[in-house]
Amino acid sequence: MKFDTAYCLSLNEKLSIYDVRDLNFDETAAFDSDKDSFLCPNDECRAAFDTGNSLSTFNAKNVNYLRTPHFKNKTSTRHIDGCRYASTHKAATGENDDEREEHFPSEFVLTRRQYERKTLVAGINGNLLQTPTKTPSNPVASPHVANDTTPDKTSVFAHPVECYVSNIDDKDKLKSMPLKIGDHTATYWTFFKKIEYLQDNKGLIYWGKIKEIKDYTSSFRIDFEKKVWLDKKPYSVNVYLSKKLIDNYRKRKAFLEQIKAAVDSERPLYCFFYGVTPELKQVPSKKNPEQTFGVFSANIENLDHLIIREAPGAESV
């Protein structure tokens, strides 16, 4: 069985797998998921066992992943009777159930989540107390409550993007799932807009297949394959990532590793971004600086809201 949320022992709170990925690459955070322990998100189930009854993570530290990241039970993981996170069959602990992201957050929060390490108190037997909840008198789960489920909000851009990409062939599902960003509420299908239709509406998540990534050593330009048509004329589309933006990014090393690999990649890659809308600009010609040509372009303002990745099935959309 795969699931999106688990209790993090070192932070003493529940994190999504996308929170964990975000922290792993954050150079300002002392965090390593391989050295941490992740436990059942069900409070009563977790309290019934010691901290050695942990879960494993899938794709928590891969900069570029092809399959949906998640937590999963180990073969040794135990749950109380009735816990909805218990595996019901052996195949549930395998890798055959990670093709789609099923936990759709209904809100993408633009302010990044802050994490505060809390002091954990040692119990009588020396084990760390996991939560202030009481250990149940018998190992039977009570009906789960809201805080036992996947968080309805996320501040990690990769989460809604994965929901869209992994379900890209299910148009009806994407049209039925709501998403709120700022004051704007729509469906996932509406919020994700192909780059060639960026004139339809502002404030959306734009995406498209990458034609080329220009590597200027300390800065980059992402050129999209599709063009925007305006007044019966085609215009190229690109986004620019400045040196200052990259140098000040809290996940700089991981980002540079990712984009440099993308520059040399022969596989089809896609770029998703939020926060800016490319607009028509006149750019001087290299051959003749006195002449200009039109291009839809934007300077990315927040690298937390940009992703370069593969997107199987995107060509058929």
Rank of each mutant, 00 (worst) to 15 (best):
F31I: 12
H89N: 14
I300R: 01
A86L: 05
V161C: 03
P284K: 11
L241S: 00
N201K: 15
N167H: 00
D169Q: 14
I195A: 04
N42D: 15
I205R: 01
L179Y: 05
V228W: 00
Y235D: 12
G126R: 10
S33L: 02
K287E: 15
L15H: 02
K175Q: 15
I259A: 04
N62D: 15
S219P: 07
Y197D: 12
G313S: 11
V140Y: 13
D4M: 12
K74H: 09
L129S: 11
V263Y: 06
K281G: 04
K243T: 11
L198D: 08
I195Q: 05
S33M: 04
S106D: 05
L230E: 10
R250L: 06
D247T: 08
I181C: 06
N59A: 10
L179G: 08
L23P: 04
T185C: 01
D223N: 15
Y188E: 04
R67W: 13
T187R: 06
E27D: 06
F71K: 00
E196W: 08
D98W: 10
V109D: 09
K194R: 11
N138Q: 15
F71P: 00
P284F: 11
P289Y: 14
L120P: 02
D81L: 15
A29S: 15
L15V: 12
V276P: 09
H144P: 13
Q130I: 07
T190G: 04
E279R: 13
R309I: 11
I307N: 03
S16C: 10
